[in-house]
Amino acid sequence: MSFYAVFWREMVTLKRTFFKFFASRLVSPLLYLIAFGWGLGRGIKMDGGNYMEYVVPGIIALSAMSTSFNAVGTSLNISRLYNKTLEEYLIAPVTTQAFVLGKALSGVARGLIASLIILGLAFIFGAHLILNGWFFLVIILTCFLFSTLGIIAAMTINSHEDMGNFNTFIILPMSFLCGTFFSPNQLPDTVAFFIEILPLTHASLCLREIARNGNILPISLGVLVVYTLALYAGAVLVMQRVRD
């Protein structure tokens, strides 16, 4: 399948810059863990457990989101607007579906690595989490859906600067508000309602429930699946309209 060619290219460059990628994915979770897990969170009990164990699934969710969104979105935006390397894929006999799939899977690969780094850090910090297949399924869905969101953003936003703005105004607020560091129930009702529509909220809730009890939240999982399918379809659509 030709999606693999697209994915292969991303893995070649990931391997080449692995150390840099690894180091860059280490810094912000480490700071979050120190600030919110150790510093602010010491002694705080959240739903009967310690705050470190509460916050780690949230950090994984937000890191999966920002890693996959940026890895796919930024590079595709540059490839379309500046390098023009996107043309190489457009003149090749590769279907739009295969292209989107290959790109999204590369975002999943990077997001999974970022998540594993956080799990490693959490282990060092002494957090106890239950990890099972559901846990990784939720991470994969989260990465996949934010990768495809990255594709949609990259294909519709016409400057590198505005890609940055999308990050500042959409991705960054989500990473703090979507059940990552505290429960959305603590927010005013209307805000909480809005927050609960967002996919990252369900990723955080799901990961937290699995990490604590090993159980999947079926509705949240369903929400993630629906977002994944809808954003994949959306990404295919915007890719098909790339030719002017």
Binding site: S2, Y4, A5, V6, W8, R9, V12, E88, Y89, A92, P93, V94
Partner: peptide
């Protein structure tokens, strides 16, 4: 090499 390989792979 990789530029050429990518092209070849895209053409299966």
């Amino acid at each position: 090499w990789e530029n050429l390989e990518l092209h070849g792979r895209l053409h299966r």
